[in-house]
């Protein structure tokens, strides 16, 4: 489903990713771990087409991400659900409107929206707060809205970049459990994190990055950085 082949990325002659190669199969749950500055976020940016690699090839389903033109990107993004540490919700909209917006840009019908949007918010535990504006929600609740928005279009993959970075332990596990539930339902999940506890308890595949290189890639791996 996702293939990185000899991908490198440099900013001003400084290489932040070096010769990265890996493959992620459908329905996998993969943790991407590494210290701050290891290159996790750069890798995520390349995967979602926000930036282009200096070298190498990135394939997602039928799309060659590194060759995408600006106008082709929206179609690809609709097949990905993206979650960030800072939530990236539309600030002047309610929780419900944020989820609906993602559905409307994907061209879903009104009937579809009326049915699926409340369902997604119920699933993340925000059924009673769906009419609240973003600023009226706590950090954990905002991240739940972001997850509802990411999954509502039934994407092929959920890409989460440090989704628990701003949350307390209780909310952290709430979010991780939601991602696990989504994965159990058949959606591929790529989780970039530097939270050792989470990775060690998940017992899923772990790709470890250090200094822009893949140093370990293990099924049922642990958070080990040497």
């Amino acid at each position: 489903m996702i293939t990185f082949s000899n991908v490198s990325k440099a900013y001003n002659n400084h290489e932040v990713l070096r010769d990265i190669s890996f493959k992620i199969e459908p329905k996998e749950f993969v943790s991407l771990v590494g210290r701050s500055g290891a290159g996790k976020s750069t890798l995520v940016r390349l995967l979602i087409g926000e930036d282009k690699p200096t070298k190498g090839r990135i394939v997602f389903g039928p799309y060659e991400i590194n060759k995408l033109q600006s106008h082709e990107l929206p179609e690809v993004r609709r097949r990905m659900g993206i979650i960030f540490q800072d939530f990236k919700l539309l600030p002047k909209k309610t929780a419900y409107e944020n989820v609906v917006f993602a559905m409307e840009v994907a061209g879903r019908s009104e009937e579809d929206i009326d049915e699926a949007a409340p369902q997604a918010l119920e699933l993340v535990g925000l059924g009673k707060k769906m009419r609240n504006y973003v600023h009226e929600l706590s950090g954990g609740e905002r991240q739940r809205v972001a997850i509802a928005r990411a999954m509502v279009n039934q994407p092929d993959v959920i890409i989460a970049d440090e989704p628990t970075g701003n949350l307390d332990p209780v909310n952290t596990w709430g979010i991780i459990n939601l991602l696990l539930k989504i994965n159990e339902l058949g959606t591929t999940v790529v989780l970039a994190t530097h939270n050792k506890d989470i990775v060690n308890q998940l017992e899923h595949r772990v790709i470890s990055l250090d200094d822009g290189m893949v140093i370990r890639d293990e099924d049922k791996g642990k958070y080990i950085l040497t």
Binding site: I48, S70, H71, L73, P74, E75, V76, R77, R78, M80, I82, K88, L89, L90, P91, K92, F101, A102, V105, A106, R149, N153
Partner: peptide
Amino acid sequence: KEEIAIMRLVGASNAF
């Protein structure tokens, strides 16, 4: 501009 970046993130087309 932040809002525009978020719209791009969720797959809004340029026209949208």
